[in-house]
Simulated assay, not measured.
Amino acid sequence: MNNLLHDAAPDFDQPIAVLKHCHGRIRKQLATLEKLLSHLPEHGADEQARQAAAAVLKYFEKAAHLHHEDEEQDLIPMLRAVAQGEDAATLQALAPVILQDHKDMDAMWQDLHEQLTAIAEGAAAVLSASAVQRFVQRYTSHMEREESVIAPMALRLFSPAQMAQLGAAMQRRRAQLGVPESNKAAVGQAVADLRKDYGQASLNEHEVLDDPMLQFTQWFEQALKAEVNEPNAMTVATVAANGRPSSRIVLVKQFDERGFTWYTNYDSRKAQELADNNFAALLFFWSELERQVRIEGRVERTSDDESDRYFRSRPLKSRLSATASRQSAPIASRAALEENYETVARQAGEDPLRPAYWGGFRLIPERIEFWQGRRSRFHDRIVYERQADGSWTRQRLQP
């Protein structure tokens, strides 16, 4: 009923061919599903049916989601970064349909999963014909859409370096499925061989804007358009009084000519370190666009009014969490933390006030460096430095 041996896949230096090969394997599994519909009424959950059901389960549980992630996390964001004109318009219309297909097919698969599991275990011989037909039809139209538009667009627009980038990401995703214990040391040693060549864009000192905050705004808007994963996430690095650095990821909540603002607990470790040394560094890394922005400067607290306004804008549960948690302080257990939250929730009501120990910080930039990945590690780096009169200078740095 089903050939359990897989055809040899193309190498990852041909990522579009790999994606099409995945489609071929999906079509085989869909054909097996349809054969099961006619097989079960006559033969029940016999050995052949159990093997077929197990094969379909194995593929859609372990492999199909990787194919979706290839498209959601790499292929579509990379296309959005390079598509222009008619290609950009086509992609804008088609990408949401493809992403919705993934969600719908995942939901349909859940309906089939239980039935196939029972068949594979020999516990039942029932398979919904309507569920199979909906699943097969949606997957088939989805693959045809990608093969007729998305794959040709990628083959036409991607450079060899971008193809290599896509293939490397797909290969890493599959390698992460599981590593035998005996191979862990080898994986650690192989880190030095992990490489990704960049080549999506360039950065020219004669084309960047005079004001680095306007340049940052431009790049941030492009990150939003490319649907970068959490474009507002930034690393905040601080230095304690003893000279030891620490860093963590926070979300920038505002940026303008005054600087970059985030909110936190004033008793947290980062706040204590900023009290000892009010200079810090921020880092935004947008891997989908092969870009990073490094920012250094002096940090100050936002005004009480500004912190109050932002606190009131947060969802109620987020306000309660900020009030209940003494960030960075030890606590005996998760249960104790939850108890703190419940106590605060009972006492605070629907409009809790901002606690005095919670508020904003703003980094006033003195140095901003824009980094654009380029081939062979020959990256573009443009740095701006604020002068005593408030103006900015800019220059290229060697990679």
Results as ranks from 00 to 15, higher is better:
residue 222 Q to E: 14
residue 124 A to R: 04
residue 133 Q to T: 13
residue 304 D to R: 12
residue 42 E to V: 10
residue 384 Y to P: 02
residue 366 E to H: 12
residue 126 V to H: 13
residue 209 L to W: 11
residue 345 A to L: 02
residue 146 E to I: 02
residue 37 L to W: 06
residue 146 E to G: 01
residue 115 Q to D: 14
residue 380 D to W: 03
residue 143 M to G: 01
residue 91 L to P: 06
residue 253 K to M: 00
residue 124 A to G: 08
residue 378 F to Q: 14
residue 86 E to Q: 13
residue 90 T to V: 11
residue 31 A to C: 14
residue 190 A to C: 04
residue 240 A to F: 07
residue 147 E to I: 04
residue 300 E to A: 06
residue 219 W to S: 01
residue 297 G to P: 12
residue 149 V to N: 06
residue 17 A to V: 00
residue 288 E to M: 03
residue 130 S to E: 15
residue 300 E to I: 02
residue 369 E to H: 08
residue 268 S to A: 00
residue 4 L to H: 15
residue 101 D to M: 03
residue 244 R to W: 12
residue 229 N to E: 14
residue 340 N to I: 00
residue 307 S to N: 09
residue 255 F to A: 03
residue 377 R to M: 02
residue 33 L to F: 02
residue 167 G to M: 01
residue 300 E to Y: 11
residue 327 Q to I: 06
residue 143 M to I: 05
residue 135 F to G: 01
residue 179 V to C: 08
residue 322 A to R: 00
residue 348 A to M: 04
residue 291 R to Q: 06
residue 2 N to Y: 15
residue 241 A to W: 11
residue 65 H to L: 12
residue 120 A to C: 09
residue 57 L to T: 06
residue 380 D to L: 03
residue 239 V to S: 13
residue 326 R to Q: 14
residue 28 K to I: 07
residue 42 E to W: 11
residue 378 F to E: 12
residue 395 Q to Y: 15
residue 61 E to I: 07
residue 375 R to T: 13
residue 181 E to N: 08
residue 12 F to R: 08
residue 14 Q to T: 08
residue 226 A to W: 09
residue 324 A to R: 01
residue 335 A to P: 03
residue 199 G to R: 05
residue 325 S to K: 06
residue 143 M to W: 05
residue 230 E to F: 02
residue 61 E to T: 15
residue 156 R to K: 15
residue 298 R to L: 07
residue 102 H to N: 08
residue 160 P to Q: 01
residue 36 L to Q: 03
residue 280 A to C: 04
residue 68 H to I: 06
residue 189 Q to T: 09
residue 129 A to Y: 09
residue 339 E to M: 09
residue 99 L to H: 06
residue 312 R to D: 13
residue 41 P to I: 02
residue 384 Y to G: 02
residue 159 S to Y: 15
residue 336 A to E: 12
residue 93 A to M: 10
residue 317 K to N: 13
residue 282 L to G: 05
residue 212 P to H: 05
residue 81 A to Q: 04
residue 140 T to H: 10
residue 129 A to S: 13
residue 360 G to V: 00
residue 119 I to Y: 04
residue 194 L to R: 15
residue 316 L to Q: 14
residue 311 F to V: 10
residue 369 E to F: 10
residue 234 M to E: 06
residue 3 N to Q: 15
residue 227 E to P: 10
residue 363 L to I: 05
residue 111 D to P: 14
residue 16 I to Q: 04
residue 69 E to A: 07
residue 27 R to A: 05
residue 64 A to V: 07
residue 297 G to D: 05
residue 50 R to I: 00
residue 42 E to R: 12
residue 32 T to M: 06
residue 340 N to T: 03
residue 180 P to W: 11
residue 169 A to H: 13
residue 361 F to P: 04
residue 241 A to G: 15
residue 259 G to I: 01
residue 55 A to P: 14
residue 144 E to G: 13
residue 224 L to C: 11
residue 95 A to S: 06
residue 231 P to R: 01
residue 187 V to L: 12
residue 310 Y to S: 12
residue 270 K to E: 03
residue 392 W to H: 01
residue 172 R to A: 07
residue 276 D to Y: 10
residue 390 G to T: 03
residue 291 R to K: 02
residue 5 L to W: 11
residue 128 S to Q: 07
residue 176 Q to C: 08
residue 370 F to K: 02
residue 348 A to F: 02
residue 88 A to E: 06
residue 181 E to M: 10
residue 270 K to C: 05
residue 324 A to G: 04
residue 190 A to L: 05
residue 71 E to Y: 07
residue 337 L to H: 10
residue 263 Y to D: 05
residue 64 A to Y: 12
residue 180 P to S: 05
residue 11 D to Y: 07
residue 291 R to N: 03
residue 81 A to F: 04
residue 305 D to A: 14
residue 308 D to L: 02
